[in-house]
Design a protein around this nucleic acid. Structure first.
Length: 301
DNA sequence: AACCCATGCAACCGCGGTGGA
DNA sequence: TTCCACCGCGGTTGCATGGGT
């Protein structure tokens, strides 16, 4: 962590230009930006920086907001489900962190990139050294889509999808208070309570875990829900997420049955048993077929 | 206690894309 | 068409921290 600039708060003028601050953000700066974003919303980032009274460049403000202050951010350790999804998406997308992040609600590209570089990369490397599995690579290029990781994690991936609605910080009956969160960022003793508030933390994948029927899960098998379970899941999701987009993507499925292949748009590709690589198939089409995760309740356009 | 090293992560940098003048 | 400002992304840096010696 970088030290906050000792000149923090001082407006330094040089050649009629305000010297912009760099380095770590102070709590005061965070509060300014947070308040401005919540009251005045979007716009040109350089204007935001100016209007919020920050001696920061717009770029820095944008980064701070996206990676740290956004109320919809889910902080804390990655769940095994998220890990699995990251590994799988990385196998498809390579180092396209923003695209991976777009499918992990509440996570930022920076966070995922750091997690990959610091943890997953090493773990996969170790696995490679202890097994002959071809699925582990630290390459920035997409790997074969037919990977042993996928069968291990597909249940988790789907579970994550099911649970992604609860990633919202605004949930029915539990209104999220961004200022509470902001305060808690500097009050570590209170952090766990904050992070689990509103469906975060432990409850992120705890609520609906086990809805899917593991026995029916396989690379080419259906993720089937019984009508009762499906309705229960659906109702819970609607109630918790308050997010129509969600219902239009993942689970507005009247057949109550869908395939992983459908979900990831792979049915005509790797599931046929060929080792297709990025660039050999239509990435755009593939990504179009990957369901969007629910738009976050507090979105930055 | 002091030092070294590995790790995690916030933030910066540079580049390419885009849209408006 | 060119220029410029802005945005978004991926790679990289550098600091704090914790563990080992």
């Amino acid at each position: 962590m970088r030290k906050p600039d000792p000149n923090m708060g001082k407006v330094r003028v040089n050649n009629n230009k305000i010297k912009l601050r760099k380095g770590l953000w102070s709590p005061e700066e965070d509060e300014k930006l947070m308040k401005y974003m919540l009251t005045s919303g979007q716009g040109c980032w350089s204007n935001i920086a100016r209007n919020a009274g920050l001696q920061r460049c717009g770029k820095s403000c944008r980064l701070r907001w996206i990676n740290y202050l956004r109320p919809d951010l889910k902080r804390g350790a990655f769940s095994p489900q998220e890990e699995g999804l990251i590994i799988h998406l990385h196998s498809i997308l390579g180092n396209r962190w923003s695209q991976i992040a777009a499918r992990l609600p509440g996570r930022t590209d920076n966070e995922i990139k750091n997690f990959w570089n610091s943890t997953l990369k090493k773990r996969l490397k170790n696995n490679t050294s202890t097994s002959s599995s071809p699925n582990n690579s630290d390459s920035s290029e997409p790997r074969d889509v037919v990977g042993g990781i996928f069968p291990v994690y597909e249940h988790d991936i789907m579970t994550l999808c099911m649970n992604s609605s609860s990633s919202s910080m605004v949930t029915a009956g539990n209104q999220f208070d961004p200022f509470h969160l902001l305060n808690n960022r500097y009050n570590m003793t209170d952090a766990p309570a904050c992070l689990t508030q509103g469906g975060m933390g432990d409850t992120f994948y705890g609520d609906y875990y086990g809805i899917l029927e593991p026995g029916k899960i396989g690379l080419e098998g259906d993720f089937s829900l019984s009508p009762l379970e499906s309705n229960a899941a659906h109702n819970s999701i609607d109630m918790k997420s308050n997010n129509n987009h969600y219902n239009n993507t993942c689970f507005n499925n009247t057949d109550q049955s869908f395939k992983v292949a459908d979900m990831f748009g792979l049915e005509n590709h790797h599931l046929q048993g060929e080792n297709l690589r990025m660039g050999e198939w239509d990435l755009e089409r593939l990504m179009d077929n990957i369901p969007s995760f629910p738009l976050l309740d507090f979105q930055v356009e």
